[in-house]
Design a protein around this nucleic acid. Structure first.
Length: 433
RNA sequence: GUACCCAUAGUUUAAUGGUAAAACUUCUCUUUGUGGAGGAGAAAAUGAGAGUUCGAUUCUCUCUGGGUACCCCA
């Protein structure tokens, strides 16, 4: 070893910007929401799919749209040593569609219902409910046009929310038309705004060139006033889109799902057609943070090189759902399984406790111990801190006698039982409580 | 990417241009093989880097991270 001390560079590491740790104390929330999603997707008929976190960059450029903010400035991209241009997924949908095409899932009976769960990455300024790595649950129904599926997805979101205790959520919904009626509408918007160009904010002047539909949901008060006069998409829908949207709303009424028709809801991804929606918490004041959002994307698969395949999907932000659960003080029931704490004294009993541990585990009992502490005192103190229900004390004497002490940590009473019967005795005591 | 605010032990909070204080947490001890209370003790911090200064945790700047709003979105 070098005796000279290295120049000390004091460096404390922290999570990279916008990234965060999910600590043990929070895991109960995550387990809860994942469990609810697992159970509900099963009853709704979804199959799970997992795709890589890294994908060909162009998949997203093409799928989401080159001029969308997500692609333009929020995508984590990298070049591999081999020269491939990859991106950390900022979204699930294009990746799922790629998997659908690549793996021939189109030969499954339609609709193909898939869900996925995992992290997504967006390079943006972190803020409340907004992280550079966040977790989404994503649901897709591929290959059917029927508006009832749009409604079903929205219903699924509400089922999940309800199961985790989140109520007072409202659906914001709109229809942005299809490739037949949208161009005409878009022209209307452009000509409407062009005459008022001078009054628009800088961003909106740019939007007018690149993504005119986004003009409608600018938050600048001046632009909002203008937007209020702007032509609304629902007035320009073709017959097909209009009927589709009407049906969606009727189904939502039937399902008694609360919604607000929001003519300014446009959404930032190019692939949407017809129905678009977001879920907002019904908070009195403050900015609206969408808990989830989605819509129909009837052209996406074709765009990615597949057959014309109408589809609908949505994504849900798990971080945001959990934040809201916390804000609304929703407790997740931590299933406190009774803990058995194994106290061992001396080498012989330490050895014995290994087998005993295994025996208890096989019997389905949650057992803990503290092998690194030698005194009975400190071991019992740990048992107490961990709120063990029973302590099993295996001392040298007991190890020789083939017995063990069962101590009730609540009452403090204890009893010596034969080692061979310990599982039975423990179970008996747990039942009595 | 823009704007404003913030940064002291693991956590929550003090104080100061001159040795950084406490509570909670953690650990040890409190004599025999029995936890919780009490007592005694230990560990543990000025985010990083420059500048001003005899001396900076304190003042200034940069960076990093956090919060909030915008942008956008889950």
């Amino acid at each position: 070893m070098p005796t000279k001390s290295q120049p000390k560079i004091k460096r404390s590491f922290q999570t990279a910007k916008g990234m965060r740790d999910i600590l043990p104390e929070d895991q109960a929330y995550w387990e809860k929401i994942r469990k609810v999603i697992r159970n509900l997707t099963r009853t709704y008929g979804f199959k799970r799919i997992d795709t890589p976190i890294l994908e060909d960059k162009d998949l997203f450029v093409k799928g989401i749209g080159a001029y969308t903010d997500i692609v333009e400035k929020e995508m984590y991209t990298l070049r591999t040593k081999g020269g491939e241009k990859l991106a950390l997924r900022p979204e699930f949908t294009p990746a799922i569609m790629r998997a659908y095409l690549e793996n021939g899932l189109s030969s499954l009976p339609h609709p193909v219902m898939l869900y996925s769960l995992g992290p997504i990455f967006r390079y943006e300024r972190a803020q409340k409910g907004r992280y550079r790595q966040s977790y989404q649950a994503n649901f897709e129904i591929i290959g059917e046009n029927d508006p009832i599926l749009d409604a079903k997805l929205i219903q699924l979101f509400f089922s999940i929310s309800k199961e985790i205790g989140l109520k007072e959520i409202i659906t914001q919904i709109n229809s942005i038309g299809c490739s037949r009626c949208r161009p005409a509408y878009r022209r209307k918007v452009v000509s409407f705004y062009r005459s008022r160009k001078k009054q628009l904010c800088v961003d909106c002047q740019r939007r007018l060139q690149q993504n005119p539909l986004r003009l409608l949901d600018c938050k600048e008060s001046k632009c909002m006033q203008i937007a209020a006069q702007a032509p609304q998409t629902i007035d320009y829908l073709c017959e097909d889109c209009n009927g589709h949207f009407k049906n969606v709303l009727e189904y939502l009424d039937e399902l008694e799902i609360p919604y607000i028709l929001n003519p300014y809801l446009v959404r930032g991804l190019d692939y949407y057609t017809k129905t678009v929606f977001e879920f907002w918490p019904e908070e009195e004041e403050g900015r609206q943070i969408a808990l989830g959002g989605g819509g129909r994307y009837d052209n996406l698969i074709k765009l990615l090189g597949g057959k014309d395949t109408p589809s609908v999907g949505f994504a849900m932000g798990l971080d945001r759902m959990i934040n809201l659960m916390k804000a609304r003080e929703i407790k997740v029931a931590s299933k406190n399984r009774p803990l058995i704490f194994l106290v061992q004294l001396g080498e012989l009993s330490k050895k014995r406790s290994l087998g005993l541990f295994e025996e208890l585990r096989r019997a389905g009992l949650e057992t803990a111990s503290s092998f690194s502490r030698d005194t009975i005192k400190s071991q019992l103190r740990i048992a107490n801190k961990r709120q063990a229900r029973l302590a099993l004390i295996l001392g040298q004497k007991e190890a020789l006698d083939e017995t063990i002490i069962i101590r009730d940590m609540v009452s403090g009473s204890q009893e010596v039982v034969p080692l061979a019967k310990v599982v039975k005795e423990v179970k008996k005591r747990l039942k009595n409580n």
